[in-house]
């Protein structure tokens, strides 16, 4: 019982963090066809910006300022890099963002050093909020939950209830039509790209001190974000949401299960002493998202809720 409650709670928080990262990527991907390899790098920038700004102004200012800065950086990348490449096709764009990921990581190493920086949870939130089954639950995690849900609601409101959301939704599926109607599609692209990067930055601000702020953090989480986007399906924020939670919960649950292959498949004659039988479920946790990705692309290329194949 304890296991289930804690795994669920931790899994949901991790899943929401993933969603914050992948929502922007999904929008960018479905609108512009750009699979932004450097998206997780903006997540990293968010964490580092928050660390630097926070050491001067405190956490709360950084919480707002860092995502904005990341968004500006994202807009610059779109305006001066990607836009030039649009005519060259998607592979060129993909390669550009791939190179960009390298550059951002190296710049981070130069500016902030090669080892992790001490980006800490703010003192105001660094206390156990409640006790459950004899184990304390840190307040900061609940704060993360609140921020994620607030973002989720804001995003939903923006897309479904405002005029700009309407245009964005239209541009997702019919970019040419929207352009013919006289909207500046390029500017919408830039706006969405910047907003997506800012969301990734926000994820970095609240995730950097929950996990570890180090130069390799982008390359660790980057591929998982891709998994979310593909599994969720093209152009579908709902799909990305479900996929994020699914992956978050799946990974935390796998670690808390205390079983090996031989326990699961013992009825097939798999013995605990054989190598396959000795594999424990927790050790499989890192492979699960990718297994999901490959299976999804093979059997349902549309993803969970995608409107079309990509």
């Amino acid at each position: 019982m304890e296991t289930i409650v804690f795994s669920l709670l931790n899994g949901i928080i991790y899943g929401l963090l993933l969603f914050m990262l992948s929502s922007g990527l999904t929008l960018i991907f479905s609108m512009m066809g750009i699979l932004n390899f450097a998206h997780a790098s903006f997540y990293m920038l968010g964490a580092y910006f928050a660390y630097s700004i926070g050491s001067v102004t405190g956490f709360w200012v950084a919480l707002f300022l860092a995502p904005v800065l990341v968004g500006v950086a994202g807009a610059a990348v779109e305006r001066f890099g990607l836009r030039r490449l649009h005519a060259e096709g998607h592979v060129a764009e993909l390669l550009f963002t791939f190179g960009l990921a390298y550059i951002i990581e190296e710049i981070v190493k130069i500016v902030w050093g090669k080892i992790a920086v001490p980006y800490k949870v703010p003192a105001a939130l660094d206390f156990p909020l409640f006790e459950l089954f004899g184990s304390q639950y840190p307040a900061y995690r609940i704060f993360m939950l609140v921020v994620s849900l607030a973002m989720l609601f804001a995003l939903w409101y923006l897309l479904k209830r405002t005029r700009i959301g309407l245009i964005i939704q239209a541009a997702l599926t019919h970019p040419n039509m929207v352009a013919h109607l006289g909207h500046n599609v390029q500017r919408i692209f830039m706006l969405v790209f910047a907003a997506g990067c800012a969301l990734a930055g926000l994820a970095g601000v609240i995730g950097g001190n929950y996990l570890v702020t180090e130069p390799s953090m982008a390359f660790t989480i980057g591929p998982i974000v891709f998994v979310v986007v593909v599994v969720g399906g093209m152009g579908s924020l709902e799909g990305a949401f479900i996929a994020s939670l699914l992956i978050g919960i799946m990974q935390t649950f796998a670690i808390s299960v205390d079983a090996t292959f031989s326990d699961l498949f013992g009825w097939l004659g798999l013995s605990a002493s054989s190598e396959l039988g000795g594999i424990s479920i927790p050790s499989l946790a890192p492979t699960l998202p990718y297994l999901l990705l490959v299976l999804m692309l093979m059997f349902r290329p549309r993803g969970l809720m995608g409107a079309r194949e990509f």
Partner: peptide
Amino acid sequence: VGNEFHPIGKVKDFTPYVQKMMN
């Protein structure tokens, strides 16, 4: 009561492992 291995240098949040120990 437990003899667990975790991947070296890859785990960023040990909370699930700690939870398991406490259980």
